[in-house]
Computed example of a mutant assay.
Amino acid sequence: MRTETAGVTETLIESAKKEFLEHGFQNSNLRRISSESGVSTGSIYTRFGDKAGLFSAVVKPAADGLMELYLESITAARESGDPAEATSQGNEGTELVLKYIYENFDVFKLIFCHSAGTEYEYYFDELAEIEEKYYREFVKQFSRRENMVSDFFIHVICRTGWSYIYEVVSHDLSYDEAQIFMKSIREFCFAGWGKVLGQNYEDLGL
């Protein structure tokens, strides 16, 4: 019985993922998911509560995994003792995050592009807020300029940083294409941070 239930749940999850990818959350239909999976709509409500609960079941494992990975990356960068080490940790973290996203590509396309009306609609904002908090600390610790970088500058830059990830996902870039693109973005951004903070390019380990 447990095996049968697990199989039904997996089938529902896959059918729901396909429906949400094609129609988005708001325009998706539980009857189509029910028909695709061979499970009654009543069974869907019993297992997941409602359509939002089903969407959460589809994306939550990967979303939680990325959040954990990203927090570990940010912590490692925060605990580094110099800007070059922080940059190195940041580069490594970006590569790990990108790899994880591509290992769960369909789920993150749902979160970034099709989650309006769900609790994951603001997942992107949560990631940007975490990065913003880290960069405030980074600026205070490593700036050599008399005038500190404004919080608004940091806010916009961090929002833009996650927009790059959104763009590679929403445009269906291959993993290799995304890696090349993000490498260029990292070089571009860290060169800019070096100028803003009064750090030499070499001091950032680039």
Rank of each mutant, 00 (worst) to 15 (best):
A116T: 14
D64L: 09
G65L: 06
H114Y: 09
Y122H: 12
F181K: 13
F112V: 04
S40T: 13
I185H: 12
E10M: 09
M182Y: 05
G192S: 10
I74R: 00
M67S: 07
E95D: 15
V8E: 09
S43W: 04
H171D: 13
E132I: 09
R159P: 04
T94Y: 08
L12Y: 03
V59D: 03
Y70W: 06
S37R: 01
P83Q: 08
T5C: 07
L98A: 11
R159S: 14
Y201F: 13
F188E: 05
I185C: 03
E119K: 12
F25H: 12
S43I: 07
G90W: 03
F138W: 08
E137S: 15
Y201S: 08
E22Y: 09
G81F: 08
Y102P: 03
S37F: 01
E4L: 10
L110V: 03
G7P: 02
T5S: 06
K18W: 01
F112Y: 13
S56A: 15
S115W: 00
G65D: 04
L173T: 10
R2Q: 13
A77G: 01
G90H: 07
W162R: 07
G93S: 05
E10R: 14
K195L: 13
T118Q: 01
K60L: 10
E187G: 10
G192N: 13
D203W: 07
V139P: 05
G194R: 03
L66Q: 01
G53M: 02
E146L: 08
E19W: 06
E167D: 15
I180C: 05
R32I: 07
G7N: 11
F55R: 00
T3R: 07
L96K: 15
K18E: 11
S35K: 14
N104L: 09
F55S: 01
F105A: 04
